[in-house]
Amino acid sequence: MNNTEVQEKKSIPNFKIDLVNKRHQNGSLIPLLQTAQDSYGYIPEKIIYYISELVGIPAAEIYGVITFYSQFRLKPLGKNLIRICEGTACHVNGAKSILTALQDELGITVGETTDDGIFSLQSVACLGCCSLAPVVMINDATHGNLTMDKIKKILKKYKTEEKIRIAS
């Protein structure tokens, strides 16, 4: 997710070129997986086999690397990515009640995506703006100094926007 903010989204043909270019570099597996995730939003199974053939690492080993790192996903993300900070400053400033509110509103827990594919919920450690704790990031926007009511209002806004979009 974060990478996409930095490197512009790559198209799939470009992705394949990128893969071929990177395969001979030392230690290229993780960057390859990061590129794959940037292109597809997650790492599809067929890509694991594709990469395996390309770099000559068994698919099982690649799978082991994917599951070791929390950055990698084997399933696509929802349209809006909600990241709740569970860093220490946010924890002592009440992140738990914000999480409860999010879970109540969305009906999912951390690591899940809503059935309609509109929201995904993830937790992260320190977003770097502890002075605004507790903090939630929705897509690229940071929301700080949250209370249970404030986060519910913010979610409502996103939900309404989504409804308007579907209606039009």
Partner: peptide
Amino acid sequence: IKEGAGAFVCGEETALMASVEGKRG
């Protein structure tokens, strides 16, 4: 630059090196 992939243990130097080499950290 090598981007980490979200594992606290990769801050430990030997795990970090394994991760740079493209392995599990």
